[in-house]
Structure formats: structure tokens, C-alpha cells
């Protein structure tokens, strides 16, 4: 079966929280090695929950997770996770935050710090290594978190709305930067966003989740736009616009459903 080849394979995952709320109901997703998959869905549908399952942080109520063919039991050792909310350690400087992953894996501190500096440079924070998280802007913290995740060179990168805090220009810079980093060594990426355009511009495949509760995967779209891509330019192409139109037609109903549900509550 595909499970043996897929980098990440979630089968029939259902998540019911204590209290009886079922966020995800029977969702399955296979991510091939080197594939860039985006998950799009209305707010509150269970995207972060789904990613937590993939990271091994959350045990699904039912369903199974395989990583490179092995059944996942505990944390996913091949995954790097960039969280939706603030996850930097406030008592460490940006440099120490980026270096700590290498340090705890046994890299010598001096080496870890040198690599951290290189990564801070790459995400445009070269001059801010000595800052504590509270001394950085929200966007700077996101970039530090990106460096913190990628410095460990994980085979699978899980990203939960990584760029939603950035302004449009910085965001496009970071998106292009991410695509460039990704194309260099083709990690598997699971990228969560609520921005359909971002999803199409970045991905090989876009997966649509329905509104919760009991969110399911209601659509999968292959994005066969040529690479390398420039996220700003590709939005003007006909191929992009056609895909956008087709996916949006499906997504719109779910967004309205989700909105109606949350505004009623």
C-alpha cells in the first residue's frame, strides 16, 4: 500500500475531545516524500488538531498514523513543527532559541551558535540574535520560529499558519524564501493556511477541510503549476486563476457554514 512509501500517512483519523466535541471525523491524508501539501479550511474546523496528530503531540481517538512506513507511537521523530501561536522560549535570546534544538541533540554549543547565526541571517534576523522574544515584533518572532524549526533539518515540516502575522510584502518574501529552501532539499511539507491563494501558490496539492464539527476532507486538488514559482507573479497566471475559481466554488459553502455556526454560538 501507499503507506509504505508515504513520508506521512494519516488514515481515518478521528479526534473527539474530552467533553464530546468531535473536531475531525475520519480524515485521511498521504504526503509523499518531497511533496508540499497545503490544508485549507474555515477557522475552527480542526486544522491545528490534525497537525498535532501528525506531530504525535495528540493521540487520535481512532485512526492510525505512519511515518515513512512505521506506525507512529509518541512524538514524530522526523517532524519539525512551526506552531500557530508563540512557541519561542521567552527566557532565551533569538540565537539561543534557534540553537537549542541542535544543542539538545548533542551538537557542541559553539557549533550550534554558529549555525544559528547563519539561519538568523537567512531569515533576515542577522542583527537581532541578542534580542529576547519580547523585544521582537510578531513577524520577527515568526521568522525566528522558522529558523528554529528548519535548523534541525527535519524530513517532514509541519507549519501552522506560519505567515499569517506578516504584512503582504514580507509575507511574499518569506513564501519565496521558503519555496527556495524547500526546493533545495525537498522536504515533505504540510502547510496550514486559511488563505486559499497562498495555498495554491505554494503547494503541489491543496486539501480542503469542511467546517466543523466533524470536519472531513471534502476536496483535493493537484496544483500542476510550473516550478520554480514566484508567489507574487504566479497569482496573475491563467492556470492559477482557474484553479482558484474551481477550489473557491467548493470552499465558499464551507466558509459560510463555519461562519454561520460560530456567529450563532
Amino acid at each position: 500500500m501507499a503507506a509504505t512509501q508515504a513520508a506521512l500517512s494519516l488514515q481515518d483519523v478521528t479526534c473527539t475531545f474530552a467533553g464530546g466535541y468531535t473536531a475531525i471525523d475520519g480524515a485521511s491524508l498521504d504526503v509523499a516524500p518531497g511533496e508540499f501539501v497545503s490544508i485549507v479550511g474555515p477557522t475552527g474546523c480542526g486544522k491545528s488538531t490534525f497537525l498535532n496528530v501528525a506531530a504525535g503531540l495528540l493521540q487520535p481517538s481512532s485512526g492510525r498514523v505512519h511515518v515513512f512506513g512505521d506506525e507512529l507511537n509518541g512524538l514524530n521523530p522526523h517532524a519539525g513543527y512551526m506552531f500557530q501561536s508563540e512557541a519561542l522560549m521567552p527566557w532565551k535570546t533569538a540565537r539561543d532559541n534557534v540553537a537549542v534544538g541542535l544543542e539538545v541533540r548533542g551538537t557542541k554549543r559553539a557549533d550550534a551558535l554558529a549555525q544559528a547565526d547563519a539561519w538568523l541571517d537567512r531569515v533576515g534576523l542577522g542583527a537581532f540574535g541578542d534580542r529576547y522574544p519580547h523585544q521582537m515584533s510578531g513577524g520577527m518572532r515568526k521568522r525566528a520560529a522558522l529558523a528554529q524549526t528548519l535548523i534541525l533539518d527535519p524530513k517532514i515540516v509541519l507549519m501552522d499558519e506560519p505567515f499569517s502575522a506578516l504584512d503582504v510584502q514580507t509575507r511574499q518574501l518569506m513564501e519565496n524564501e521558503l519555496l527556495e529552501l524547500w526546493s533545495a532539499d525537498r522536504k515533505s511539507v504540510v502547510f496550514i493556511t486559511h488563505d486559499l491563494e497562498e495555498a495554491i501558490a505554494m503547494s503541489d496539492r491543496v486539501v480542503i477541510l469542511s467546517a466543523g464539527p466533524r470536519a472531513r476532507i471534502i476536496g483535493e486538488y493537484k496544483i500542476d503549476l510550473p516550478r520554480p514559482r514566484d508567489v507574487a507573479e504566479i497569482r496573475m497566471t491563467d492556470g492559477f486563476l482557474d484553479l482558484h475559481k474551481a477550489i473557491w466554488a467548493d470552499l465558499k459553502d464551507e466558509v459560510l457554514k463555519g461562519y454561520a455556526r460560530t456567529s450563532r454560538a
Binding site: N52, F83, E86, A87, L88, P90, V100, R105
Partner: peptide, 25 residues
């Protein structure tokens, strides 16, 4: 913060390292 804790675990910290880098500070 549970997120900081989850992040630290994803970065590969064992319980002794969690103590030193997260709980103690």
C-alpha cells in the same frame, strides 16, 4: 505554556533537558 512545552519536545528535549531549558527558567 503548553505550546512552549510542545515546541521544546518537538525540538528533541528529553525530560532532563525540559527541566533545564523550560521548567527551571
Amino acid at each position: 505554556s503548553p505550546v512552549i512545552l510542545a515546541n521544546a519536545r518537538m525540538l528533541g528535549m528529553n525530560s532532563r533537558q525540559l527541566l533545564r531549558h523550560v521548567y527551571l527558567p
